[in-house]
């Protein structure tokens, strides 16, 4: 009896060793389809071509009022203050801090980032309109637009940021070289 069990055991082992016959389907049918409403409720990303920007518009003067009320406490009254996260230093400025004006390659990122993560103490609390105003204020403070420019889903992606031409793709690729 014992012997026959071990022979059967050995046969199984042999089969297992000989080959694995699992079949992996193309699809498993786990999870469910997402509705458009579900997608819209989460999809807050903005692309550099403006895809994803909501309706609304903003202007620097209004942005300044919002900035003073909701942002200045951490970023300084004008944004040029040498805080850990300095927001204003126009291109060519001799400061070593990296800012929207001297480092950011796309203006759409300002809208995307402020809307998703700022103010730091109340993330996600701003209306689209407020974010447009703040974006206009920060672009104006960094000398990228003038104070009359209206920022909306058409004009924001058109802005060419001063540092954009400095960006290059990573070309490190291993091997015996230091890059």
């Amino acid at each position: 009896m014992l012997r026959s069990i071990s022979i059967i055991g050995m046969l199984f082992l042999l089969v297992a060793c000989k080959g694995n016959n699992e079949k992996f389907p193309e699809r498993y049918g786990f999870g469910r389809l997402a509705s458009q409403a579900e997608i819209d409720s989460q999809n807050i990303s903005i692309r550099p071509d403006g895809h994803g920007l909501p309706a609304g518009s903003g202007i620097a003067a209004t942005g300044k009022v919002i900035y003073l009320a909701k942002c200045a406490m951490c970023h300084g009254p004008t944004g040029t203050e040498p805080t850990a996260n300095r927001l204003v230093a126009p291109f060519g400025d001799t400061t070593k801090s990296k800012t929207i004006g001297n480092y950011w390659p796309y203006a759409t990122t300002i809208f995307d980032y402020i809307r998703r993560a700022m103010p730091f103490n109340a993330p996600g609390s701003l209306t689209n309109e407020e974010v447009y105003h703040l974006t206009a204020f920060l672009l104006c403070s960094n000398h990228i637009i003038d104070s009359t420019k209206i920022i909306n889903q058409v004009t924001l992606p058109e802005i060419v940021m001063p540092a954009k031409h400095l960006y290059v793709d990573d070309d490190r690729k291993g091997g015996n070289e230091v890059k």
């Binding site: 999809n43 990303s45 692309r47 550099p48 480092y103 950011w104 796309y106 759409t108 995307d112 980032y113």
Partner: peptide
């Protein structure tokens, strides 16, 4: 996860 034909240029891959 959003599939696209271009990078989104988020703050964490630019600034």
């Amino acid at each position: 996860i959003e599939l696209s034909d271009q990078p989104f240029m988020t703050r964490e891959e630019t600034s």
